[in-house]
């Protein structure tokens, strides 16, 4: 009988422990855990200045007029950043079609400022038809990078061939500078829905 109760106690403890460790069985990976945390906490993003492809300094943090949808890239990326760029282009088209052009800002942020100078940013913008009006390509200063990536939960690791692997997603930042939601890099409808929520 004691063995039975001890087993029940162990099972209850184990289940509670694993429930907490997985946010109620909803997040088994760091990526899903971060998305849940973003929706729950709406953390402020650091108020850094980004250098855009047109040479302007653009603030990312508070007091913006527009909601920002940001993605993290490096322009020499041969794979996922290109695909991500084409989804960003689709999102831009949707924003124009729905008349949200003056309310939503798209920024592709490079985390490789050493390689990505203005010329590279501009070229990346040209490839994806980002003209700077709604969608701009920018780079973060090297000194701002650690806290910027930390705040957005982006982990960048070297792939050993001069490139990087990184988690790619669309990050929705409301005009008050808070990170509201993170959606898959190809979830154009989701990004639009989450951006709309910040405008109400």
């Amino acid at each position: 009988m004691k063995a039975f109760f001890a087993s029940i106690a162990a099972a209850v403890f184990g289940a509670t422990f694993l429930w907490n460790a997985t946010d109620g069985l909803s997040a088994l990976t760091t990526e899903s855990a971060r998305r849940i945390a973003v929706v729950r906490d709406n953390p402020y993003v650091p108020d850094v200045r980004l250098e855009t492809m047109s040479g302007e300094m653009e603030r990312l943090g508070v007091d913006r007029k527009r909601t920002v949808v940001a993605e993290f890239i490096y322009t020499s990326c041969p794979t996922i950043c290109r695909t991500g760029g084409s989804y960003f282009a689709r999102l831009r088209n949707q924003i124009v079609a729905e008349g949200l052009a003056d309310q939503v800002r798209l920024i592709s942020i490079s985390f490789d400022p050493e390689t990505d100078r203005r010329a590279e940013l501009t070229q990346y913008g040209n490839i994806h038809d980002a003209d700077g009006a709604i969608w701009t390509v920018a780079r973060a200063r090297a000194t701002d990078l650690p806290r910027l990536l930390e705040a957005f939960g982006v982990v960048v690791i070297s792939d050993g061939f001069g490139g990087f692997e990184h988690n790619t997603a669309m990050h929705i930042v409301s005009p008050d500078g808070r990170l509201r939601s993170v959606v898959d890099f190809d979830d154009v409808a989701g990004a639009l829905r989450e951006a709309r929520k910040t405008l109400q």
């Binding site: 009988m1 004691k2 063995a3 109760f5 001890a6 087993s7 106690a9 162990a10 099972a11 184990g14």
Partner: peptide, 11 residues
């Protein structure tokens, strides 16, 4: 007696 059968420990 609580560890009989090893259930609690294995859990």
């Amino acid at each position: 007696s609580w560890s009989k059968g090893g259930y609690a420990l294995l859990i």
